[in-house]
Amino acid sequence: MTMPFYVPPEQLVKDRAEYAKKGIARGRSIVALETMDGVLLLAENPSRTLTKISEIYDRIAFAGVGRYNEFEALRVAGIRHADVKGYQYGRTDVMAKSLASAFSHTLGQIFIQGAKPYEIEILITEVGSTPSEDRLYKVTFDGTLYDEERFAAIGGQSEALTAKIGEGFNGRPDLAGGLQLAANAFREVEDRTIEGWEAAILDRGAERRSFRRLTEEELAATNEVPSG
């Protein structure tokens, strides 16, 4: 009978975290920002059909970076969870917090027990009736759940991006202002031509389903202020 090698838990966690971080570092980042008009999500995404930002429920959106198949599986699970809950109870009973903790639970379990950790980071955002009721939750590869305020970023450049946005964030901007702020942060941090945007907003004024993708005209605001 062969005995498995003993691996101390510290080493196991360290190895897995390193592996996951390496995968995430390759991914292009996503920024979420609270604006007066709603919660803005901006991603660099050259693909026009493989989206990273998606609607989960009336006032909740999802964004994921890293391996597409892995965050896509979580996205689908999130929509199922939300739709079943909303159908069984009421539409206002579906809330970002319970979704975020479910995602956190799942990622945490996969991190320890799975054959390999998921190489992803995700954002779950919720728009409230006032900006102070907006919610930004970030879940990392190991299941750690962060409750962010005003803005949040995921992906390889998340730290540099939040630092950059923090410099320019004076009170909540409107949609166009927020878009400019986020796009400029991307340009300065990445220091190269951005290969295409994917942008959506959870519209504060919407009656029911608040998620909508931004139009070309709205996205034009990203080009108004040159970088640097």
């Binding site: 599986a73 969870h81 479910a102």
Partner: peptide, 18 residues
């Protein structure tokens, strides 16, 4: 179902809610 995390394997239901 809350607190149990989410089943992430893509199970048979596909796109049908029923």
């Amino acid at each position: 179902m809350i607190g149990d995390g989410l089943p992430v394997e893509v199970p048979p239901p596909g796109s049908s809610f029923t």
